[in-house]
Nucleic acid binder design. Structure first.
Lengths: 215, 215
DNA sequence: AAACTGCCAACTGTCGACAGTTGACACGTT
DNA sequence: AACGTGTCAACTGTCGACAGTTGGCAGTTT
């Protein structure tokens, strides 16, 4: 018995399209042609349309009436505003995590940080995977499903602005330090400090993104 | 010339359906039949489907594969989690408003509060309209479009849990006091205090909703 | 009487086709 | 040559019909 393995065509199309948009396979600024992509995926326009609207609701596409769907390219203003939202959400998550975390939550956070350190000392770059894992672990510890969901969506939009983020070694090092400091605050149950550190962390990431954005 | 007055059928359907869901014309727990509602609106299933999916993305409907769309009825847990999200967003908005507000923003906030007082003194109930106007004015002063958008969506979901909220006079009085105190903090540019007051305010509102929810 | 089995109606998921709109190109005008 | 106009192809918006799935009901068995 494989219960949810029978995803609808629209659902499959959402996954494929999301991947193509996030990886840049469909470049920023370009349009998504309904008939073309539908043929390409071997489905009808109906389910594809549904998928397009879904991604638009996630902020990964912008719809223009009678024109079609475009993958948005962000201005520096957009980046700033988006990080204000992300800061609001993740600072709250950090506070909640500090006051609700179980010992198991703490262990997981520490594990992720330790693996990042090992990676870094081995001279390898700080993989985005581990950064995501850290923030995900923090969200799990916060136990606030609606906040977690919104953070997921915002993180996706941040990825859309992929601008060679994880390439700057000093930035990587600073991010890892931030993560470590966050874990300490969470371990202490110090919600105020967790929020403060998270705010500084995201402020740094935002600044880094703004420098690497061509405008 | 009326540029955007030619809304698509799907767009119109979204407006009509949203109204029906929020006012309870379509009661919580009930299902939305695609063919029935489509005929009722005089449109085809395509646009209606699109409208349903859109409202689902706003959290006003929940989709069950092969079963249809249902208007969700929330558990106390849901209310708590939703208010954690709302608190994260609106506290951040209050902080931003305190640091960015113009004199015009301040005047508008004060006007809304004054009108609420006048209403209250006249023995009339505190209309939800004025409460919305206050929070909207605060969001305008915060000048953070993404946060504002998310707050709008969350407020909608809160309305969905309409449970005779504005009927308790002591609660109304407390809410107005909170609003006044918020305006003072924002006038002073005291971001920390604005956040604190907003948190207390929403905590009170959440508690009020929980007491009036049958469970 | 309770439980199981098979059928059925209702509904959602999907498809192909038609209609209306948009932006662009070619042509004609000044 | 620059500008305005008319035409057209391409694409989105919409529709009606078909296919697959689900939950419930009737009939049967123990």
């Amino acid at each position: 018995m494989t219960p949810p393995l029978h995803l609808s065509l629209a659902g499959q199309a959402v996954d494929v399209l999301r991947e193509q948009v996030l990886t840049g396979e469909i470049p920023a600024g370009s349009r998504v042609n309904e008939v073309e992509v539908a043929q390409q995926l071997g489905i009808s326009r109906g389910p594809l349309r549904e998928a397009i609207r879904h991604l638009a609701s996630e902020g990964l596409l912008t719809l223009v009436p009678h024109r079609g769907a475009f993958v948005p390219d962000a201005t520096p203003e957009d980046v700033r505003a988006l990080f204000e939202l992300r800061t609001a959400l993740e600072c709250a998550a950090a506070e909640l995590a500090a006051s609700r975390r179980t010992d198991a939550d703490l262990v997981r956070l520490q594990d992720v940080c330790a693996e990042s350190r090992r990676n870094y000392r081995a001279g390898q770059p700080f993989p985005y995977r581990l950064d995501l894992a850290f923030h995900q672990s923090l969200l799990d510890a916060a136990r606030s499903p609606y906040i977690a969901e919104q953070v997921r969506l915002v993180q996706q939009r941040v990825v859309l602005l992929r601008s060679a983020l994880a390439d700057d070694p000093p930035h990587q090092r600073a991010s890892m330090d931030d993560h470590d400091e966050l874990v300490l605050a969470i371990a202490d149950g110090d919600a105020a400090k967790a929020s403060t550190v998270m705010r500084r962390h995201l402020s740094r990431v935002c600044a880094q993104m703004l420098t690497s954005v061509t405008h």
